[in-house]
Design a protein around this nucleic acid. Structure first.
Lengths: 228, 228
DNA sequence: TCATGTGAAAACGTTCACAGCA
DNA sequence: TGCTGTGAACGTTTTCACATGA
């Protein structure tokens, strides 16, 4: 299931390229997984391929879009208009995935009033007075750590029940709120870890004699980040 | 293993707060997992807790740091100095996790020459002429999609064997290069998906009668992003 | 007494291998 | 013939439950 968005993007590419059919083998190699996985994944959505031929990219894409609820078009608010906040707001990817940014907040007077993508950055305190059509389903926190909890509180107050937190803070929210953490530097760390383990096969004399542990196969995003 | 960086950050927090002991239960609740998982995870590193009491945050943190190779201090190059590239370069998190940015590249004449964190942004073509002490172990690609493959080629040419790709492109690299994709909007999508499934319990009449699938437990970052 | 550390069981995800269909 | 779809086998991760030790 976690791979559906990957297939989605690849298929969109293929549709643009006018590819008429795509085998599980091809799709797998583009996605960097094996063919069995692709077939298993897709079979969970239904039987959308043709035996002996493959999949029709456009049709398959439509099925995945439906499964992923791209039609939902969630409203999201971004709080913290630093580099990452801007990157996310300007991102092309959101629209094509069923999200649109409806409100931007910060506390910095230098930033408040600025227009990004036609939206004026407002002071964080105005979160509480959001009008219903701007009221986000999802709040994205890209503030420094010290502000994150207060932002979360404000978002919860105004009825947000899903929060994506990029700030380097563990947040406390009511049980009904769905909270995810993203830490970009963990990705790097994993890469480094992986490298250390692969490229330097126990060249270190002082290391314990333990053989390489099973180690990292996929990384769950589950912790705060410093990138703001 | 993928959770160690999470524990790491939480422990660092606790050390700052002068917490003297921490039970697996407490650590678990901070990390958003269950206590059994925490104990299993930590037991793989060794027996660092005290029965009946818990763990000493500082000591445990030191063990995790060691296991994660924070001492390695990898050199990384960031290619593509847009919002995300800046966010990553300015990130506090890298240094504390054993990374330091040694080189910045772009193609935009407006950006080339700019100084960020004491590093001058250079033209992408200069990747090839990197001096050995700047030569990165890890390359981070935060360019638009169209530039990503060329950047990857240059990085590989200069001997980079680990690449973290934020660009919305599937890249081709030699087999010995370790490549990871990051897609920030997938996190949002997952959140939306999860919400759709939780908050709207089959209110849709036309939906298949299938009960909510097991669904997403952790998200592997494994696809390109649009955020650049 | 209380929380760790750990075998054993259960759940889960991946891979295999092939039947079934175009 | 060629590729999908899928049971069955396999391996890994998570959970359970409790013996162990401070």
């Amino acid at each position: 299931m976690v791979r559906l968005p990957v297939y989605q993007r690849i298929l969109a590419d293929q549709v643009r390229n006018r590819t008429s059919t795509l085998s599980s083998e091809q799709l797998a190699s583009l996605a960097g997984v094996n063919a069995a996985k692709v077939r298993k994944d897709l079979s969970l959505l239904g039987s959308f391929g043709t035996r002996g031929t493959g999949y029709d990219p456009a049709f398959l894409l439509a099925q995945i879009d439906r499964a992923l609820g791209v039609d939902k078009n969630w409203a999201i608010a971004v709080v913290g208009i630093g580099n990452l906040g801007r990157a996310l707001t300007n991102s092309q990817g959101f629209a094509s995935r069923g999200f649109h940014v409806t409100a931007l907040f910060d506390v910095d007077p230098m930033v408040i009033g600025e227009e990004i993508k036609g939206l004026r950055v407002r002071h964080m305190n105005e979160i509480a007075s959001l009008r219903s059509h701007e009221r986000p389903a999802i709040g994205v926190i890209t503030t420094p750590g010290w502000a994150a909890q207060e932002v979360a509180n404000l978002l919860v107050q105004v009825g947000v029940t899903s929060i994506l937190n990029f700030a380097p803070r563990v947040l406390t929210v009511p049980a009904h709120v769905h909270l995810r953490y993203v830490d970009l530097s963990i990705e790097l760390q994993v890469l480094g870890f992986y490298r250390a383990w692969r490229d330097e096969p126990s060249s270190d004399g002082a290391e314990e004699s333990e053989p390489p542990p099973p180690l990292i196969r996929s990384v769950g995003l589950s912790a705060p980040t410093d990138i703001v």
